[in-house]
């Protein structure tokens, strides 16, 4: 049995006395290497929700960015409104199905709790779906599907701003939700994971909307959108690298071994660098956009999957769990 003490963690020397200081130093450092924490039970559906919710929020941001210039970027505002609405409809279905029985979702609505990130997220989703529905209905009216008068019900100036602000929250809160747990990896990423979530959701929204514009939009807007996507993706890449360096050994479940390799291959290489290079090539046109978008979206899913699965492994490490990150 190991008689070693816990190795000192970076930045922990100034934390004052710990419980049990001054006792004879031959205690085992862990309890039979048993996990100290319980791991989350979340899997495919929650990962899907994190992925779709990020794109939904990013699309809301795009509505605000493009929406106030109707004559020029009307096609982007249009597709972003439809995407926001479609995902605002899909996300609750994914969330509810994970609860086992649909009626249990209603329990979320009996309380507004600022301390619970999940409660904030549920209310954020509801708050988003209102303007998303109004904006999509208005868009349908302007597109001639619904009667014209519907467009005047919700002023665009209002829905654009609401979708932008609530969308930013929806893209990022899932990162806060993860880091506000006892899981060591997620706790270490209290700044990085929320920031990466926003970047990835925003890049995903750019990719999905660029794909839609490739099918029915102007080249001019699509190129701008791809440029914006590159900015968000490269920021995501840099944040991932910084997180890897800052997390130290607590980051191993995410960045080391096969999972780390998968993250580098699918998210950082195929999902960020390849689309960025593709976008710079002077040929390819719409097909290229569709391919790049598919790669970016797949990379975004792998990022969410890696975060969740790595969190489960992180919970299994009793040493990391004993001295929890501030």
């Amino acid at each position: 049995m190991s008689t070693a003490q816990l190795p000192p963690q970076p930045g922990e020397s100034d934390r004052g006395a710990a419980p049990g200081d001054g006792l004879p130093a031959h205690a085992p450092a862990t309890y039979y290497e048993r996990p100290l924490l319980k791991k989350p039970h979340w899997e495919g559906r929650v990962i899907t929700y994190l992925f779709l919710g990020g794109i939904m929020g990013g699309s809301g941001m795009l509505v605000m960015i493009a929406g106030d210039r109707p004559e020029r970027e009307a096609d982007l505002a249009r597709s972003a409104r439809y995407v926001s609405f479609a995902l605002a409809a899909a996300c609750p279905i994914v969330l509810i199905s994970h609860l086992g029985r649909p009626a249990r979702f209603l329990n979320m609505l009996r309380i507004v709790k600022f301390k619970s990130v999940m409660s904030m997220g549920v209310w954020g989703l509801l708050a988003f779906s209102g303007p998303a529905t109004a904006a999509a209905a208005g868009q349908l009216a302007r597109d001639g599907v619904l009667p014209k008068w519907i467009a005047s019900l919700a002023p665009r100036a209002l829905t654009n701003v609401l979708l932008g602000f609530i969308g930013a929250f929806m893209a990022g809160y899932t990162g806060v939700l993860l880091s506000a747990t006892a899981i060591p990896l997620w706790g270490r990423g209290k700044l990085f994971i929320p920031a990466i979530s926003v970047c990835s959701g925003f890049a995903g929204a750019c990719a999905l909307n660029a794909a839609l514009l490739a099918l029915c939009g102007t080249d001019r807007t699509r190129h701008k959108l791809e440029h914006l996507e590159r900015i968000a993706s490269v920021a995501e890449f840099i944040l991932l690298e910084r997180f890897r360096r800052r997390a130290g050994s607590a980051g191993d479940p995410m960045f080391a071994g096969e999972r780390g390799l998968k993250l580098r291959r699918y998210t950082q290489l195929a999902g960020i660098l390849v689309p960025a290079v593709l976008g710079r090539l002077p040929f390819g046109g719409r097909t290229k956009t569709l391919l790049a978008s598919a790669l970016t979206l797949a990379g975004g899913y792998v990022l969410r999957e890696t975060l969740i699965e790595a969190g489960k492994n992180s919970a299994d490490d009793p040493r990391a769990a004993s001295r929890q990150p501030e």
Binding site: L36, F169, G175, V176, V198, Q324, P325, E326
Partner: peptide, 24 residues
């Protein structure tokens, strides 16, 4: 198998929300 230094997870929320706001 008790943590030497347990931390209340919600204390990380302000930093997380700030990171979201700045990035967005």
């Amino acid at each position: 198998n008790l943590p030497e230094r347990p931390v209340l997870p919600s204390t990380r929320q302000p930093a997380g929300y700030a990171a979201v706001a700045i990035t967005a």
